[in-house]
Amino acid sequence: MIERTPLLNIATHAILAVGLLLMLLPMYLVIVAASHSLQDVVAVPPNLLPGDQLWVNLQAAWEKGHLGDRFVTTFIVAMGVMTGKIVMSCITAFGIVFFDHRLKMPIFWLIFITLMLPLEVRIVPTYAVAANALLPFQTLLDLSGITWIINALSGIEVKLEWNLLNSYAGLIMPLVATATGTFLYRQFYLTIPEELVEAAKMDGAGPLRFLWDVLIPLSRTNIAALATIMFVYAWNQYLWPLLVVTDQSYAMIAVELSRLVPKFSATGGEVPKWHIAMAGTLIVMLPPIVVVVFMQRWFVRGLINTDK
């Protein structure tokens, strides 16, 4: 707006600068702590300028937390969640939007409802499923009497079992089982003009051809948006990997980070090695920050369109 408001402009900058400071100050303190030795971190008065131990501490944290291995694990899981989510939402939404069948709306609602209850709320029973992913199907067979029939006819006891604890499948699949991406894709498909479908049909393109040659190229921005959110979401997972992984070779990075300091306790205990822990914090937070800062446009768009 073209109007001169010098005083208000100064006030605006002041407010925004204070906001920026509040957002950046914690990170500055983390960097300062990560660049000193432990004696300097717990010194009085506190050091408010960065020291020269940053590289040493980063190396110590990297080794102590086995962050190299954890990076690989976490990266695999993040890629798995990202790919799984994109592929699955792309084809599911396609099956719902571009086909005419009676189950369209029921299926849509079945998937849509999953938005309501995040994993944290149903964590205990989901863990039981991870211990045996075929448990739901076993239960279905038991309840419907099929187990009994098979047992009576052939004498075989049906025992389905597939343990997902300490596996990539167990880390990835429950994180994929939500509707966020499906919803985003459905909204996108609904904007595709009818003429495009008709033209494709007239040219003799079947549904899969149409999906592959027309819709997927058109949905590139969608894919970028979904990929950025899912990467950040998966990289930062904490509660689920904490439960599913007991074998350290599958530990994810956020869980490993929390092990760098002893649990909070009223008895005090040993002084946490803050310099190492803060260096670890810096390392762990870096990849998602890079993604968010450099993919800002896609990230913001995806976040707003999926409502998380």
Binding site: T114, L117, R122, L135, P136, T139, A177
Partner: peptide, 9 residues
């Protein structure tokens, strides 16, 4: 996947 990890739990 939704049945296994959402509805059943």
């Amino acid at each position: 996947i939704v049945f296994t990890f959402f509805y059943f739990p």
